[in-house]
């Protein structure tokens, strides 16, 4: 495997792995969401990512960016709630920030694209770090990815580093008081529970680490 680029096949493999992971962890995500939301995060994301996997089966992609744009549009169309627009917009932004028409992206391109994805989430949702949201896993994952790439790491190492940081970020949401989304209505009662959105973000980064692991 070329460990310096993300090509169409690897992008598809990443999203399929994310779909499998979200589906396998549906009950756990739902349990986290039942504590501080309305208990549907797992079911909704599993429905969306299953649809993503199905639409990617059609294949025929020549540009790696198109894979993410298609995935994002599918999530927007299938998930609903806040997570559909947020994840959908993130993947669309990632896809649109990759070099147009390119069959593969190098790690600097990918870091730039992930940055665009995070920016899109923050613009749409208005969340700051520490608000107990997706951002609390996404931002540390991106920071770790960029740091690894700047240090000369190949994709497997950078992805593993990002996944570790996302996991730590997700776990660190537990003591926080939610300030965005449905959990914010609980006020201080939201503290003590890990954020389901940050947790699903970690699953997505872990999926990239898994499919690139040597």
């Amino acid at each position: 495997m070329d460990t310096t680029h993300l090509d169409v096949a690897l992008a598809v493999a990443w999203l399929r792995a994310a779909a499998a992971s979200v589906t396998a962890e549906t009950d756990q995500l739902t349990r986290l969401d039942a504590a501080i939301g309305d208990g549907d995060h797992g079911v909704n994301l599993a429905r969306g990512f299953t649809a993503v996997a199905a639409t990617l089966d059609g294949g025929g992609f020549t540009a790696v960016g198109d894979v993410f744009v298609r995935a994002g549009a599918t999530l927007i169309a299938k998930v609903g709630g806040a997570s559909g627009p947020l994840y959908g917009t993130a993947f669309r932004a990632v896809g649109k920030a990759l070099p147009p028409g390119a069959a593969s992206a190098d790690l600097a391109d990918l870091a730039t694209a992930l940055h665009a994805g995070l920016d899109a989430v923050r613009k749409l949702g208005g969340a700051e770090p520490g608000d107990k949201t997706i951002v609390d896993a996404f931002r540390p994952a991106l920071d770790a990815f960029e740091e690894a790439v700047a240090g000369g790491a190949a994709l497997p190492e950078a992805a593993a580093s990002a996944a570790r940081a996302a996991g730590e970020g997700a776990r660190a949401t537990a003591p926080l008081t939610a300030r965005k989304g449905r959990a914010s209505y609980l006020g201080e009662r939201s503290a003590g529970h890990q954020d389901p959105g940050a947790t699903s973000t970690w699953l997505i980064f872990q999926a990239l680490a898994d499919v690139t692991a040597p």
């Binding site: 349990r31 986290l32 504590a35 501080i36 997700a170 537990a174 609980l186 003590g192 529970h193 890990q194």
Partner: peptide, 12 residues
């Protein structure tokens, strides 16, 4: 892999 909140909840 799963932090606080997995097994205790306001929930049920």
């Amino acid at each position: 892999l799963w932090g606080a909140g997995r097994d205790h909840a306001v929930g049920n």
